[in-house]
Design a protein around this nucleic acid. Sequence first.
DNA 1: CTTATAGGTAAAGGAACCTTTACATATTGC
DNA 2: GCAATATGTAAAGGTTCCTTTACCTATAAG
Lengths: 68, 68
Amino acid sequence: MENRVEQLRKERGLRQEEFARAIRVSRQTVSAIETGKYNPSLELAFTISDFFELPIEEIFIHERKDVL
Amino acid sequence: MENRVEQLRKERGLRQEEFARAIRVSRQTVSAIETGKYNPSLELAFTISDFFELPIEEIFIHERKDVL
DNA sequence: CTTATAGGTAAAGGAACCTTTACATATTGC
DNA sequence: GCAATATGTAAAGGTTCCTTTACCTATAAG
């Protein structure tokens, strides 16, 4: 899943370390999410959403699978 | 985190087993989410959101922590 | 060149998510 | 009562998420 975390963070002039402190995770977690190593938990996705004041859907881009 | 999965599933007249098959997880996972044992991954939250055609924010209710 | 800053990443450990198999309870229909 | 259906849950195992500690590279400043 793609995400706009790095872009949004930089728009706000924050370093990974500052952002990590703000959302109460480690800097490594921020780095891993930004570089696409893994997705955040739903809980953390909400925290990031709250921080940027944007819906989850505008930060994390989910490729909808066909059918369902 | 609270969620409206059980309510939305029942509104659509689905059993846990049918719903689980539709979103490609085990019935136990559906049960665990509905009974609040744990939250879905962000990926699964998106899949559920797609299935119900509702934003994640209208299915999963996040208690926003103060400050940030 | 040396120092400081920003960010990527590895390793080890723990917590959370999800699976399969299996059993238990409650409800419904006969 | 008996069988079938729907849901809850436990156990064991695998994967993903997140932590701390630590090191590495790149860039910029002096």
